[in-house]
């Protein structure tokens, strides 16, 4: 099954990827490919857009039209692509720093406009590419190379942030619960407006080592035990859920989508121009 996906959707000659042993990004990249395959999307109509950081190297490995842009700007580039050709399925692969620090403004405004992009965040809670600095999603008290005394910032919940900014679809996934996360990415792509799936991944090399979280296996085990798919969470008490992260849909609304609204605007403008001043 996995090899079939690789043959179909990966640039095999570009593999192996540059991610560290035990990194969760490869799983999430596969999840995106699985979602595309399950939905039966036309490869020619899919564009993968990424920014800068570990996550964003995914674009280079995926055999579609791919564009690896500047740091933080993936969603802005994707906005231009989608506006220029609304028939394209534009999927943004980004990281926690890329999407919510340097690119935070673009994230909230794309959510507000409800433009039909799907944003998959490979959220490793740290800046990996530059060697382990704390990010906007590093939990309070955790360590990074720029937080040698512990992080005093409060972290973003990216799914909630996007939902608050008006994203019509927002969800939480992770690296461990593959089926759940694939399902959420599929829902996001199929959703008409702006969709974001914030996927917690594992970074044993920097986040794990800095914070004594163990290796990749321990970190995956932590996700298995502490991240609860929504359907299971629904049967649990609030005491049982204390300290757990629930995976699933955070927001799902039917708001007008930007490029559809623009098509209507074109019709309106032409009617007004045709009808005389």
């Amino acid at each position: 099954m996995a090899s079939e996906l690789i043959g179909k959707y990966m640039r095999e000659d570009k593999l192996p990827h540059i991610w560290c042993p035990g990194c969760g990004n490869g799983i999430l990249m596969r999840d995106v490919a699985q979602a595309i395959d399950d939905l039966g999307l036309d490869k020619r109509k899919v564009v993968i857009v990424s920014g800068i950081g570990c996550s964003s190297r995914a674009a280079g490995y995926m055999d579609f039209n791919t564009i690896h842009t500047t740091h933080g700007r993936a969603i802005a580039f994707a906005t231009g692509i989608k506006m220029a050709n609304p028939s394209l399925e534009v999927i943004v692969i980004t990281g926690d720093g890329d999407a919510s620090a340097i690119g935070g403004n673009h994230l909230i405004h794309a959510a507000r406009r409800n433009i039909g992009l799907t944003v998959v965040v490979f959220n490793n809670s740290i800046y990996g590419m530059t060697g382990g600095q704390y990010s906007p999603t590093t939990p309070r008290g955790d360590y990074g190379t720029t937080a040698p005394y512990g992080n005093i910032d409060r972290p973003f919940d990216i799914a909630q942030l996007a939902a608050g900014a008006g994203a019509s679809f927002a969800a939480r996934g992770d690296a461990y619960h593959v089926q759940k996360t694939v399902d959420l990415i599929k829902k996001g792509i199929a959703h008409k407006g702006f969709a974001i799936i914030d996927c917690l991944t594992v970074c044993p090399t920097y986040y794990g080592r800095k914070n004594k979280k163990g290796g990749a296996v321990e970190m995956m085990k932590f996700q298995k035990e502490n991240f609860i798919p929504e359907e299971i969470a629904a049967r649990m008490t609030s005491e049982q859920l204390a300290g757990k992260r629930v995976l699933g849909v955070v927001a799902n609304n039917d708001y007008p989508e930007l490029t559809e609204e623009y098509a209507a605007l074109i019709a309106r403008a032409k009617e007004r121009a045709g009808g005389g001043k």
Binding site: V49, I67, T69, R73, A76, F77, T79, G80, A84, N105
Partner: peptide
């Protein structure tokens, strides 16, 4: 298509994205 972006940086980014999709921008 016209879009007023959230800032100057994203305006430039959107223009490059649209051009990559084949539209003079």
């Amino acid at each position: 298509h016209f879009i007023q972006m959230e800032d100057e940086i994203s305006s430039m980014a959107a223009v490059i994205g649209a051009s990559a999709a084949g539209v003079k921008s």
